[in-house]
């Protein structure tokens, strides 16, 4: 059991540290003591607004989004048994982006954009699964191929929409496509879903371990492969859809975090999946802290930072594992 609890406890502590750092650091100078005062119910009105209404919700959104994306990525990699799979590989973010951009083109804002993005993600999910299923059997490679082709289709639609949209709507659209946490409200739904996903993973974890050895081997060892694959697909899609809806499509977290953890912690999904939830959250909280402070008051898209942080870390781990 220590094998599981020690890394998870360490990651939880790191997540707490990242949370506190993200809440403490910002373009407005609020000292550590002030943050502590606010968290314990003291502090001035201004400090309370800064911390409780701006930084805490945004940090929670980063935690939830990062966790969701990393867990979804890890699930997709097991489902497709392909290390290059990420939450977006099956064209889900494309569908979400088309939904969001349509809402922006129509000139509606806020909740409608989120709702439309979520609907787009679900349409993309059903489309890929329906097509991959087709009349024949579905295999991971068929699912992957369908997803990649459909994603390319979404990409073309997005480019088309960007080309014909009025100039004044372009910046908003581009920022959505890059992924941005500055619009995110308090992500209660995303946090609840992340917690539920972690709970679900505990009973499914060992079956996923067996599934990772291949579907025939899994079936021979008593795994009901088809229902399990369905469950994984639906759960991963749902997590991604909620993440994309919260913060736009933020790349790289879903690909890199699961692999980093596998290099360090091995391949037991019962450990990897909850670890992904924490590590994904940590990466995005740190990335967002940098994104909003590095050249403050100018704000960078957080997706840029996740890639800039993730690529070297990942390459270093890969290099050292040889």
């Amino acid at each position: 059991m220590g094998r599981y609890w020690l890394p998870l406890m360490l990651l939880a502590l790191a997540a707490l540290a990242a949370f506190l750092l993200s809440v403490t650091v910002g373009s407005a100078s609020v000292g550590v003591a002030d943050v502590w005062a606010v968290l314990t119910g003291e502090g001035t009105q201004l400090q309370r607004t800064l911390i409780l209404e701006l930084r805490v919700p945004r940090t929670l959104a980063a935690l939830a989004t990062g966790g969701l994306l990393a867990v979804a990525g890890a699930l997709m990699q097991v489902l497709l048994r392909n290390p290059l799979a990420d939450p977006y590989v099956l064209g889900l973010s494309g569908g979400a982006a088309v939904g969001a951009l349509l809402a922006m083109l129509a000139g509606v804002g806020g909740l409608m954009v989120s709702g439309s993005a979520f609907a787009g993600a679900m349409v993309a999910t059903l489309l890929v699964f329906g097509l991959a299923h087709g009349t024949g059997s579905w295999t991971p490679s068929r699912l992957l191929l369908t997803g990649v082709v459909v994603a390319a289709g979404w990409g073309a639609v997005i480019t088309l929409m960007l080309a014909i949209s009025p100039a004044e709507r372009l910046p908003g659209m581009l920022y959505w496509l890059m992924g941005d946490l500055s619009y995110a409200g308090t992500p209660s739904l995303a946090l609840v879903l992340l917690a539920l996903a972690c709970l679900l993973v505990v009973p499914l974890g060992r079956s996923l371990n067996v599934l990772a050895r291949g579907p025939l081997q899994a079936a021979a060892l008593g795994v009901a492969v088809r229902p399990l694959e369905w469950t994984v697909y639906v759960v991963a899609s749902l997590l991604t859809a909620v993440a994309v809806t919260t913060a736009g499509s933020i790349g790289f977290v879903g690909l890199v975090v699961p692999h980093m953890l596998r290099l360090v912690l091995g391949n037991d999904q019962r450990l990897i999946l909850p670890a992904c939830a924490l590590a994904g959250g940590i990466l995005l909280m740190l990335a967002d802290t940098l994104a909003r402070t590095i050249i403050a008051p100018e704000q960078l898209p957080v997706g840029v930072i996740t890639a800039l942080l993730g690529v070297p870390t990942f390459l270093l781990l890969l290099y050292r594992s040889r």
């Binding site: 373009s27 407005a28 201004l46 909003r292 100018e298 704000q299």
Partner: peptide, 13 residues
């Protein structure tokens, strides 16, 4: 910040 991406924290403070 920029008009497309405001630093709300800075603004509020």
């Amino acid at each position: 910040g920029s008009h497309t991406r405001l630093d709300l924290e800075k603004l509020i403070s």
